[in-house]
Write a protein that binds this DNA or RNA. Structure first.
Lengths: 232, 232
DNA sequence: GCCTTCTCGCGGGTATACAATATACTAATA
DNA sequence: TATTAGTATATTGTATACCCGCGAGAAGGC
């Protein structure tokens, strides 16, 4: 039984094999090394990790519930395909939930929260300048989490996290679209200004616009890609 | 997410043992025979069903992801405790999602959908008159599903289903509060009228009010119960 | 030559055995 | 008597073996 000698994660290290497998597969899907529609055979993973199928099967159940993979009995698991409709629907929901969260957070936001938002956006501007999509993405997540946490609705926060986790690879694609990061920095600045004014309705509108813009651009991009492939 | 076990015709039974276990535990929790905080030992279930622990453990992973149980490694599973804060947060989110879904469905709703809504509400009125909470609940679910389906956002529908499934026992409690069913029938009538006018904003407002009223009354009731117990 | 059917093998579903850990209980000591 | 350390037991985590459904490919009939 190998113990603790596998791989040390920075902060929180999964305890059970199942959790490690869940993280591994999620990362593989999000990073793109596992593509939508691709099969995910239990035995192969078991062999690669040198473990039995049991923890892997349990990981599959969890990943299935969270929407990462699709399992058909007696046939096996594949990475869940995601269509432009899925993306479009996702952004509509994200926009709604974040808009509400932001508006709710508005009267509760502390000066230090505002400072944090400003600081994060400043860092995002730098990340945009050097074209650091991944860094920008992380800062952006923190930006949104700041007001989603402040709004106090923990279920909302958890729900948004679940959704964005599933669509992470698409959101990164959206940020990588030309000009999108700088665009987003400007939108964030407007959001912070609205927070300062404690204008909840404006905050909601701006936050929703931020999400919808990302979504709109991304769907457009996906359709363009599809047309390109369709022409071939 | 699994299909709702409520209105399901007994045509197709779950194929795998795991699915059967998932349904069984869900039903037990929703019906109240498994209480929040109560332990859910693998072995006991395995013995009762005369099967091994393997399918049960897989069912646990799924139930955990859907929020029904809470599993701590090497300690075991308990039915997820639900606080008044959870209920309050749930209704806030339900209100948001359904409000949006209703508003989106507004311009798309066909005459037959409106007729369906009216018919369902008429049946609800009868159910209310004879105090049939469970029947009312089923009709109410169909009522909401009608416009959530019409809105076309499948992810939204799935998300709402996941949430309401988890809070089913509380929603039934809410309906059982004195006068709530007749109250709800009146609210539904107003919603149908707004749909007929194709007034999307009004529809959204009314649908949100419908959810918030249930939530408010239920939280009130929970707090009252708690005070009562605290006095003992 | 094509279609049908049977068989076989791959892979997922389940059972069982074993390892590891948390909790309860006991006992010993201050 | 109270506290704590040690042990026993129960329960979860993991590994392995077996079973069976499903599809691919071979074999035989038309």
């Amino acid at each position: 039984m190998q113990r603790a000698s596998i791989l040390e994660y920075p902060v929180e290290k999964p305890q059970t094999l199942r959790e490690r497998i869940v993280d591994f597969i999620k990362d593989s899907i999000v990073s793109g090394s596992l593509k939508p529609g691709e099969r995910v055979p239990e035995q192969e993973i078991a062999a690669n990790f040198g473990i039995s199928r049991t923890p892997i099967r349990e990981a599959f159940r969890q990943l299935e519930s969270e929407g990462f993979i699709t399992v058909t009995p007696r046939k096996g698991a594949i990475v869940s395909p995601i269509t432009d409709k899925d993306v479009s629907e996702f952004y509509a929901i994200k926009s709604l939930l974040e808009g509400y969260g932001a508006a709710s957070a508005c009267p509760k936001l502390q000066p230090k929260d505002i400072k944090r938002l400003e600081s994060l956006n400043a860092h995002m501007e730098k990340a945009a300048a050097r074209g650091d999509v991944k860094g920008f993405f992380n800062l952006d997540s923190q930006f949104h989490d700041t007001f989603l946490t402040a709004c106090g609705n923990e279920k909302l926060l958890a729900l948004v996290h679940q959704l964005v986790g599933q669509f992470e690879r698409f959101r990164i694609t959206a940020l990588a679209l030309p000009g999108r990061m700088n665009d987003s920095v400007r939108q964030h600045a407007a959001i912070v200004a609205a927070f300062k004014e404690a204008n909840a309705d404006l905050v909601r509108t701006l936050v929703m616009a931020n999400a919808e813009r990302s979504g709109g651009l991304l769907v457009e991009d996906i359709l363009k890609e599809r047309t390109k492939y369709g022409a071939h």
